[in-house]
C-alpha cells in the first residue's frame, strides 16, 4: 500500500475525531475525540517515517504516545474536579468564561 493510503486513512480518522470533539456533550466524550485525533496523527508519523526509511518519526510517535497518556490522566483529573464542584460532567455547563 502506498503512502497515500495511509495518509488518507489518517486524514479520515482525524476528521472523525474532530467531529467527535466538537459535538459531544459529555466531557469524557470530548476526550475520546481527542484520542482519535492523536491516533490519526500517530499513523501519519509512522507512515512517513517508514516510507523514508528513517526511524525518527517512530521515536516521535513514541514520545507522542507517552505524552498523550499524561494528558489523558490530567484531563480526567480536571473532569473529576469539575464533577466535584458542579456535580455535572456536561460540557455545556462549563461556560464561566462567556462574554
Amino acid at each position: 500500500m502506498g503512502l497515500q493510503a495511509y495518509l488518507t486513512l489518517a486524514a479520515v480518522v482525524f476528521c472523525i475525531g474532530l467531529f467527535g470533539t466538537v459535538t459531544r456533550r459529555n466531557t469524557i466524550g470530548i476526550l475520546l475525540g481527542i484520542e482519535l485525533m492523536l491516533n490519526a496523527v500517530n499513523i501519519n508519523l509512522v507512515a512517513f517515517s517508514r516510507f523514508r526509511g528513517d526511524d525518527t518519526g517512530m521515536v516521535f510517535t513514541l514520545f507522542a504516545i507517552c505524552i498523550t497518556v499524561t494528558e489523558v490522566a490530567l484531563g480526567l483529573a480536571i473532569v473529576i474536579l469539575l464533577f466535584r464542584t458542579r456535580r455535572s460532567a456536561s460540557a455545556d455547563h462549563i461556560d464561566w468564561l462567556r462574554g
Binding site: 495511509y6 500517530n42 509512522v46 517508514r50 517512530m58 510517535t61 513514541l62 504516545i65 497518556v69
Partner: peptide, 14 residues
C-alpha cells in the same frame, strides 16, 4: 508498517 515496537506500545499504553 513494520513498526512492531510502536504497535506493542500502542496496545500496552493506549
Amino acid at each position: 508498517l513494520d513498526a512492531e515496537f510502536i504497535a506493542a506500545v500502542q496496545v500496552l499504553l493506549y
